[in-house]
Design a binder for these strands. Structure first.
Length: 413
DNA sequence: CAGTAG
DNA sequence: GGGCCTTACTG
DNA sequence: GCCC
């Protein structure tokens, strides 16, 4: 069996070398690397010999600005631009709560700037420096200069209205986004109590009701230790169903963050003995409900014998832990690498590496890296193409020419 | 299909 | 001017 | 909001 999330403890030795809390994750990555190198020789030159992309190749290589190609972030050193980052995050929050299509991309863009800003080591003091940041153009540079000069951003004060605050509150409910939030605001609702009181009129859905019921708990971040404890329980239960099961914990936990937004688990099984994990997730979910770990289902996989299934629900550390979002993804064993990339994120890294794949004539999704993908002139996918890599993350990175990035190096902060 | 989510 | 990740579920 |  394979486990991620436990293993040797960090050694608390020297002072400045407080051991990375991710030690346990390196084991897995290293193991994956070893397996990789035994089956496939990788040299520096091998990048020139990666499978030729069957469709349109980039003529001059990928443009810069791919987060997945950027050097890893500095680890926990005081960021000299933190005060700028904080203001840009406030602005991002405002854009997030808006409904327009362009606002979505403003958020996307700000994420790039924030990501680069948290990577940069020097203090930004001039407009020229601000302009150099990835995703930063004239307007963003102006905003950064305003923050540097005044410590404030007028745009934020102007947009910090009651509507913004109420919609932000509403959008904290699971399955409520900007559209519904504004819709409810337009109907006169202002508080969560209003939402509860008018649930019939606004046709609150089943999942929204769950989100509302656990609003406060679900708003909170999950301490790493608790995520680990929940993972242990679920893994143990899975192992009682099949001792050859493989359970990983992914998402922000695998990226090494001290708190997690939710708990993302991956379930699979090595089929070389002729047995797969078909039907296992379904049984696992039943057990977890019996154990009081899972309390509410948000999305249940329709076909309980399929090898690929995604479960989304709510649960806790029994008997009385806080309610947490729990996702379990079951996948075919040979798609483990692609699934790990997908479920480990972060989202910016995923979007970046997927865009890179597309620009190189491939397509990357949670199942694998595909070549020979048919696309229309707008880049919309017409045919699936053929699978090129999916077993390990490294294999996929190599084909794309992405330098290896440990999970904890795939975050923007 | 729109909206939401990962 | 048009793309900015990709796939899946819900109602 | 940025980039091609």
């Amino acid at each position: 069996m394979t486990l991620v999330g436990e293993g040797r403890q960090p050694q608390h030795g020297g002072t400045e070398t407080v051991k990375d809390p991710l030690v346990e994750l390196y084991d897995e990555a290293a193991a994956e690397l070893e397996k990789e190198q035994s089956s496939l020789i990788i040299t520096d030159e091998s990048q020139d010999k990666i499978p030729e992309a069957p469709t349109s190749q980039l003529e001059k290589g990928p443009a810069k600005g791919f987060a997945c190609l950027a050097p890893p972030q500095e680890e926990s050193t005081q960021n000299p631009n933190q005060y700028i980052i904080d203001k840009l995050k406030e602005l991002r929050s405002i854009y997030e709560s808006k409904q327009g299509d362009t606002d979505t991309f403003k958020v996307f863009n700000l994420n790039k700037v924030i990501g680069d800003l948290s990577r940069v080591k020097h203090k930004i003091t001039t407009r020229a420096q601000a302009l150099k940041l990835q995703g930063s153009g004239a307007k963003t540079a102006d905003k950064i200069m305003e923050i540097i000069a005044t410590g404030e951003l007028q745009r934020i004060q102007a947009e910090d209205t009651e509507e913004y605050r109420v919609c932000k509150l509403f959008a904290g409910i699971y399955d409520v986004g900007a559209k519904r939030a504004h819709q409810w605001y337009g109907m006169g609702l202002r508080t969560l109590e209003d939402v509860e009181k008018h649930k019939e009129e606004i046709r609150l859905t089943r999942n929204q009701s769950i989100g509302l019921k656990y609003y406060n708990d679900l708003q909170e971040r999950i301490p790493r230790a608790e995520a680990s404890a929940i993972f242990d329980k679920i893994r143990e239960t899975a192992m009682t169903l099949d001792g050859n099961a493989t359970v990983y914990i992914m998402g922000s936990y695998r990226r090494g963050e001290q708190t997690c937004g939710d708990i993302d688990l991956l379930l699979t099984r090595d089929p070389t003995d002729g047995i797969t994990h078909a039907g296992m997730l379904h049984k696992l979910l039943d057990r977890l409900h019996e154990q009081g770990i899972l309390t509410d289902d948000l999305v249940i996989p329709p076909d309980n014998r399929a090898l690929e299934q995604k479960y989304m629900g709510v649960g806790r550390l029994p008997p009385d832990g806080k309610m947490r979002r729990i996702d379990i993804l079951a996948i075919p064993y040979d798609q483990k690498g692609a699934a790990l990339i997908y479920f480990t994120g972060d989202d910016l890294f995923n979007r970046s590496i997927r865009l890179l794949a597309r620009k190189k004539g491939y397509s990357l999704n949670q199942r694998g890296l595909y070549g020979g993908v048919g696309r229309d002139t707008k880049g919309k996918k017409l045919s699936e193409g053929t699978i090129i890599a999916s077993k390990t993350e490294k294999e996929i990175f190599d084909v794309l020419g992405v330098p290896w990035r440990e999970p904890h190096e795939r975050r923007r902060k």
